[in-house]
Amino acid sequence: MGFCKRVICFIFTAMSVKITDLGFTYQDGEAFRFPNVEVEKGQSLLITGPSGSGKSTLLHIMAGFLTPKEGDVRIDSQSIYQLSESARDAFRGEQIGMIFQQHHFVRALSALDNVLLAWIATGRKPDEKMAKEILSDLGLSSKFHEKPQNMSQGEQQRLSIARAMVKKPAVVLADEPTSSLDDANAESVGKLLIDLTQNHNVALVVVTHDQRLKDIFPRSVSLANAKMNSL
């Protein structure tokens, strides 16, 4: 897509994530058909469903990890499955931030270096100042040089959020971000995500079975009927 087209598209829609007619089938025949979804910049969407309903599958398709059988995923107007694998990797590095259920970090690196990885992974020059700012905003100013595994669950979650947000991507995808937290922390993290979404003007998609977040997120979609017998 040409640059002008992209700019026009951005101005009129400001649509960051758009899922259309998405279907996916695993090799063992397990099949899903996902509802169409659109999320604009600065907005958030909660995708809920019971275990096995295809939440993680949908998230991984949106991130470009899994190739759908049919349908389209557009991030910032770019159909990600039209990109080659390497271009998709680079695009993901630029435009998608990810928060995982289990807080995966590079254990050998400090908290600050883990955040800097957001740039390094795609070969860009890291912005240490920005990394420190977001860590400080999330109350981790004293943890710059701490190893992630030495931090508490709540701190690890905030570190994970900082890493996803720091490069100001088009969309942040979060997989069960609160499932391992207590009620207070779950609410706190939920609100933090929504605030950051608005402040950083990114689109946020959270997939979870954590019903506690339903009251915090203004908009949600259920995947209760996404799973099909076969496609």
């Binding site: 990890f65 390497s86 680079a90 993901r92 995966h104 890493r163």
Partner: peptide, 9 residues
Amino acid sequence: LLRSMGASR
């Protein structure tokens, strides 16, 4: 994780 952050194979 590195792959998810955009690192190529």
